[in-house]
Design a protein around this nucleic acid. Structure first.
Lengths: 212, 212
DNA sequence: GGAAAAACTTGACGACTGTCAAGGAATAGC
DNA sequence: GCTATTCCTTGACAGTCGTCAAGTTTTTCC
């Protein structure tokens, strides 16, 4: 084969791979939405296919098996959800502004992306029973922790103080609040959500100590 | 029917009800263990029956349907898990002792009853998708909140201070720590669990403010 | 001990599951 | 425009699921 022909071959192969990956991603997104709607326990391949424009057989053309598909869907969740607060951090001019916009964003995504978030917790929980997704889950959990740490760290900086607890502790606290708010939001318990919202700024305040 | 006969009938009926309930509970406990082992998504009625000494058909003799059975199993979880720290509170003579014994118990049940706890989180999560268990879940969650509140409240009392946050906030924080420790415990990540354990006393300390 | 009631087993049903092979439709390369 | 490859659909498979009816075993009551 000449060099030109070889390079051409490469280009074609690459384009095919790109196309293949694009379709994979497309199907993973459809999977993500189906999972968000039904939950892990009740999501079938046929149901996923119905939420896409293809038939159920195509899933085995693009994915090894169901695990492979769902793992890819989890990865899509990460793309969507793990840089959420970065713009808030970037534009904050004062500690107060950062805190308030963080709280606002926190409850905005809670309500707007509720089904997506419940899926995340569902999959994180599945990983307690099944080691398949565990690596992906631990990775995303780490990214979530880093994300809230950037917020609190910057908040402390703007206040001229330092975080009062480790990244781990701060993450599990905020995540715990989020989970509970989500449960009550989906239960139609608006006043409990409102109460959590009212308490969140104070909780954030407790996470930073300012030297006197 | 004479009065005597009627009372006798009552006694018989009551005994039958007791027997009926006893068997129901027995089957609910078997269900609980199966769920703890396999998780909600993969637990079938035949599997449950195999973990009991009966055949799968009997489950429909004692329970309306699968939901009814699982709801009863959740209730059994409550019986087991919701008064765990009360003895610790009762015997504590000092704040330090209460804190240390709480931390010890926290990680003891984490490791000893890990499968049961992962089930709890699994079911709490199911209630985000399916309203069936929601009432039971919210009720148990409330009891768990009250349980940790008793601990922190007593701790503050012994220290001569007051809790620094609401019962809600304190619960979600401790629950968040527990969930994360559970994830890493089941992932075989012992050093992360150890780190959380080392940080827990400090976190508890932050939950109480002492007037100076 | 015999009849009635309760407790339990067995086997079957229709529906649904993940997987995959066979074949049709679309596209790419010449 | 023809061929080869890629893409996608269809239908079937073996298995599992919750449910339930029919029948057997055990217990209860007189």
């Amino acid at each position: 084969m000449t060099e030109v022909a070889s390079r051409k071959q490469d280009r074609i192969a690459r384009r095919q791979v790109d196309k293949f990956d694009a379709r994979r991603t497309e199907l993973a997104v459809a999977t993500l939405h189906t999972l968000a709607e039904l939950g892990y326990a009740r999501t079938s391949l046929r149901e996923i296919a119905q939420n896409s424009e293809f038939s159920h057989g195509v899933l085995h053309y693009y994915f090894e098996d169901k695990r492979d598909l769902i793992t890819e869907a989890v990865r899509q969740y990460e793309v969507v959800c793990v840089t959420r607060y970065d713009e808030v951090v970037a534009r904050a001019k004062s500690a107060e502004q950062l805190r308030d916009e963080f709280v606002a964003m926190f409850f905005e995504t809670l309500e707007q992306d509720a089904t997506l978030h419940r899926l995340w917790y569902d999959l994180r929980n599945q990983s307690l029973f099944d080691a398949s997704f565990r690596a992906a889950v631990l990775e995303i959990d780490g990214h979530r922790e880093a994300m809230v740490w950037r917020v609190v760290h910057r908040y402390a900086e703007l206040l001229g103080g330092t975080p009062a607890a480790s990244a781990s502790m701060i993450y599990v606290t905020l995540d715990g609040i989020f989970q509970r708010a989500l449960l009550h939001h989906l239960s139609g318990n608006a006043e409990t959500v409102a109460r959590l919202r009212a308490e969140l700024p104070e909780a954030v305040g407790l996470m930073v100590t300012v030297a006197e």
